[in-house]
Design a protein around this nucleic acid. Sequence first.
DNA 1: ATCCAGCGCTAAATCGTGTTAGCATCCACA
DNA 2: TGTGGATGCTAACACGATTTAGCGCTGGAT
Lengths: 354, 354
Amino acid sequence: MNRRRTTLADVARAAGVSSTTASLVLSGRGAELRISEAVQDRVRAASSELGYRPNIVSIGLRKGTTRTLGLVSDTVATGQMAGDMIKGAIEAARERGFMLFIGETEGDPAAESALLEAMQDRQVDGILLTSMFTRARAVPKQLDRIPTVLLNTLPSSPTRYPAVVPDEVEAGRAAARLLLEAGHRSIHLVGAGPGPDDVAPDTVAGVERLAGIREVLHEAGLQPASAHMCDDWVPPQGFAAAQEVLAVDPSPGAIVCFNDRLAFGVYQALGEAGLRIPDDVSIVSFDDYPMAQWLRPGVSSFAIPHEQLGRRAIELLIAQVTGKPADAPEDGVVHRLALPLHARGSIAPVLAGA
Amino acid sequence: MNRRRTTLADVARAAGVSSTTASLVLSGRGAELRISEAVQDRVRAASSELGYRPNIVSIGLRKGTTRTLGLVSDTVATGQMAGDMIKGAIEAARERGFMLFIGETEGDPAAESALLEAMQDRQVDGILLTSMFTRARAVPKQLDRIPTVLLNTLPSSPTRYPAVVPDEVEAGRAAARLLLEAGHRSIHLVGAGPGPDDVAPDTVAGVERLAGIREVLHEAGLQPASAHMCDDWVPPQGFAAAQEVLAVDPSPGAIVCFNDRLAFGVYQALGEAGLRIPDDVSIVSFDDYPMAQWLRPGVSSFAIPHEQLGRRAIELLIAQVTGKPADAPEDGVVHRLALPLHARGSIAPVLAGA
DNA sequence: ATCCAGCGCTAAATCGTGTTAGCATCCACA
DNA sequence: TGTGGATGCTAACACGATTTAGCGCTGGAT
């Protein structure tokens, strides 16, 4: 009926040794310090007998390291994305014996500052500074003395911290190539464009996807057949943009939607106009929301690798936390992760002679 | 160029007092123990001068309490729901000076056990045992000695822990009443029914929504016009079920969809059959996914109050953690939170004489 | 003169672990 | 016989806070 946790002292007593010895044995430094095999066995036996687990709080006090990381996010509640990115981070951390504090700031700098304080009060070993939408931002000075990795975030001025972001430029290129390879020459954009700056403010994804698309079209000697910037990427705006597309071109060959919610609206507009996908219009999109697989036909969409982003960021952070200062990563490296295509039925080749 | 955090000893030294005195003053017990105002002022001045913040790890070691809670979930990555529930929990915790560890088990009991160990190693003050889908489960014995609240989870055998769940029975009643009040008498169910046990296994939401619906229909002297159980509540099953509905009744008056994804499929099937919502068919649904607002017309849907569930659970847990054992809550209370209706355009009244 | 109470503060122990410095023993060797 | 080194372990302190017990002083009552 013991309600206390068993401590190192309990183990030592049970094994008939000092707690120093028990500590050395259990931390694997027994051989190094020439503790006899007999004693080591006694200690280990006592430890597992009593179900001993080291008190990490105590270790934290003594060593200053808690095997704990803090994930600071602007919002956790933004659709699927949040979940998957955090899931990847949590899993990668658990695999390495770390736990994660999760906090959100709602974009409020004061809240962010308070959160960072609260985490440092708890002696976190490192911080993951995270956005749910890829964006550039200043890195608070509070992070000067603590290992940090930027997740889905770019520093607005150069920092020494590594960043992990999706490779949106390459995804834009891939989307354009996909349509070109299917033989399309008349390609409309819904969400951004035509100029490189015709993008809703602060959307890194918009800027970069557009850049990739324009680059590939340009190399093929093309311009977008039309382009429709939307300041919020939601279905009603996709619906309206698709109607504009139909106004300039009653039978548009292909449409690049800047995300799946826009694509949803585009589907609705095309459906109401009596056009069929993919026979009349081919669609390609980004994000791969769950919705993309449930539209009829499913939308071919480039998926943001949220879970991998989370994992990768944690791996970098833990390397930085546990590694020697010597082999620290080069300053300010930006890791860009590819967006895999989830091909569905929304793209058809252009028939020869069409 | 001091890189160390300032400690209580630093403050005491700067104020010219012992660290005992500094501790008493800063913890507010100064007056009680008759520390002179002059000294109290010196201590507080030194504290804010040096930017002192107590090291919670140290307090944790001494007092055994860390102002930290653990949220153990089966999955964090399930749609919007996860995010909002966790968001509510995080916010409520922060407001009270607590931080949250978040962990997920993927339903694996071994992983869950390891996670609970890891959290207890870090001296969490309490545990929130969470499911992303409401379900009943056994509560692990590991939790015997630590304050616990069940979130979106019911105990499969009685426990002393409080639980917080959405009030699905009442939502079912409300959905049925909504259609009855609009004059509908021919009401089809898509997702579960007609019998009370015709429900996909382990879905508390299905059982309870169905119970509420049946109760109200029964009181009105009605049976469901038809019912179609689906073992997975996704659009293709909704699509198929709607086709079955149309097979038995080419002009169904109203359909209750057991969630919005099913409703999406129902919309697709009705659209392809040339029926209009709400003129030809009225639809009511549950969950209020983002999708519900983007369908045309929007779906009237009962929203699971995820954020409130998270908040409420944290409030109960913190009360349990900080409260005196005397005023502990009664054992095993189940708190049921109402699902508010988000009314949109999917319901029309039956025309008189129709 | 002695004792006690009240005042205002502090020394020291404590929480559970890691780490540094060092102790006792034994053996080999000059 | 004494020296030096290897061997195998432990005492004691440190981490940063809280808490218990108590110290020295003063003034008034006995």
